[in-house]
Design a protein around this nucleic acid. Structure first.
Lengths: 119, 119
DNA sequence: CCACACGCTTACCTCGAGGTAAGTCCCTTA
DNA sequence: TAAGGGACTTACCTCGAGGTAAGCGTGTGG
């Protein structure tokens, strides 16, 4: 597949569209490694997330084909979430991003520092 | 460097914080390959961007240590932008993201399709 | 009979990213 | 004298992501 500067930018933007969102990466990292979690498990595992947000982000990840939603028809309801195969294969790409971040010249990245401090 | 699920999510989020923004990737792909561009070059090369937005995104990329800004003191003013070494080294990581996107199961990713159609 | 767990859904509000339009400063050329 | 290029800066507005709070439907335990 060949890219022009424009189409490559578009392509990466589309990927970022999938990953951006206050809670998506936190959810992903809860599911990496083949883990299966119930809705309430995620709710408890992710401090600060509201039910509305949790569902919204899960639904978007599902629509993008990154996570799978499995409903068990029973009472009380039981719904499980896991990564799709494609979702799992995100790992090496995210790894590449982390490696890049690690190589940052230490005196640079004031906005990152600021982000880390939580301003 | 070792990561917990939380710190890894944080790390990737920080990287995304650097890359997200309506015009940043378009700018980056204009500069990849060691290219040097003047402000007005970028303005012309990127259809639809306003001066305010262009500067804002350039300044943020500069603050994050991804692009370098070189001022030539002369009249009329001349300012050039290029990637830092670290900025250049983003290439393989973005490549990994594009490869991941290419491996998407073709029937999936409705939100991406929608994004491509421009809805 | 009441409360509770579970997995949502709905209504409402806030705040900041991003857009538009205009202004600024300085020198050059017609 | 006027117009224009270059690189910004400023004021103002809009719209949607994300937050809060409450409601819903259904079966089980006390």
């Amino acid at each position: 597949m060949a890219y022009t500067p424009e189409s490559a930018a578009q392509g990466v933007q589309n990927v970022i569209r999938v990953l951006e969102g206050r809670w998506k990466l936190v959810i992903l990292f809860q599911l990496f490694g083949g883990q299966v979690r119930r809705f309430s498990d995620l709710e408890r595992a992710i401090p600060g997330v509201s039910q509305k947000m949790l569902i919204q982000q899960l639904r978007q990840l599902e629509a993008d084909g990154v996570v799978a939603r499995i409903v068990h028809h029973q009472v009380p309801p039981k719904v499980e979430y896991r990564l799709t195969e494609w979702g799992q294969s995100l790992c090496p790409a995210l790894d590449a991003l982390l490696s890049w971040a690690e190589q940052a010249p230490c005196e640079l990245g004031p906005r990152l520092v600021q982000a880390v401090r939580g301003d």
